[in-house]
């Protein structure tokens, strides 16, 4: 299990909750800070003393007060920590559940876990600590779509050309040939097939007839 954990969280009540959890699962060294700058200082000091922290649990939003902070948000802190101490694990513990933002944290900063504060927050955090220790990624279920590779929902002009040909009664072979005649590319049979299948999946239909019907309903053709 982790031996040394740093918690960056400016709300005292939440901080205490996390502390309590960490004591419960018997983490030997637990430190907590209320400012991003302090967090960075602690991490640096620990590295100099050759006893680096293994996990950072941080909030995303920190309240501004009289102190003039160099890093004022969790995101900035994560950026600089990942840059300076690439080995440390990071779990974000936040109320911010914007999918875009969470996606960015995983993609850009390679964080190890994201836990939503909420009713199951503490339980999730506990799971996250055990899972990230095994070098796996944790994400709270209500925002799990951030990591799901969803397909596009976009139908572009090329797709609409295909729909029109289909509506005129052409089969895929003919469409490929027609595209070649019109010098529209891509025009290979496999592309045509792939694109039509993509549309079928976006519009959740089983066959071409149903596809055309829905496309008509939606005013695509």
């Amino acid at each position: 299990m982790y031996q040394k954990i740093l918690v960056a969280e400016d709300l005292k009540s939440i901080n205490e909750g996390v502390q309590h959890l960490l004591e419960e699962i018997e983490i030997p060294v637990i430190s907590s800070v209320q400012y991003c700058d302090d967090a960075l200082l602690k991490l640096k000091k620990a590295v100099i003393d050759n006893e680096p922290y293994e996990l950072l649990i941080t909030d995303l939003s920190f309240k501004k007060d009289h102190r003039n902070e160099k890093y004022s948000s969790g995101e900035e802190l994560i950026a600089v920590v990942k840059d300076q101490f690439p080995d440390i694990h990071i779990i974000v513990y936040s109320v911010d559940d914007r999918i875009q933002k969470i996606k960015k944290l995983f993609e850009k900063f390679d964080i190890n876990g994201f836990v939503c504060k909420g009713r199951n927050g503490i339980q999730d955090l506990k799971d996250a600590i055990f899972i990230t220790y095994k070098n796996k990624v944790f994400i709270s279920s209500q925002v799990s779509q951030a990591l799901r590779k969803t397909s596009s929902i976009n139908i572009d002009d090329y797709d609409i050309i295909l729909l029109n040909y289909l509506a005129q009664g052409h089969i895929q072979d003919e469409i490929s040939q027609l595209l070649k005649n019109q010098k529209i590319s891509p025009n290979s049979l496999s592309t045509v097939e792939k694109r039509i299948n993509k549309m079928k999946s976006i519009l959740e239909v089983q066959n071409t007839v149903h596809l055309i019907a829905i496309a008509k309903d939606m005013g695509l053709i």
Binding site: I99, Q145, T150, I153, N154, I155, D156, D157, I160, I202, L203, E204, I214, M218, L220
Partner: peptide
């Protein structure tokens, strides 16, 4: 996309 449920179909056109 985030408004997609099992009961609806959401598409965009021309966005790219």
């Amino acid at each position: 996309k985030s408004y997609k449920t099992n009961n609806n179909i959401i598409i965009t056109t021309g966005i790219n």
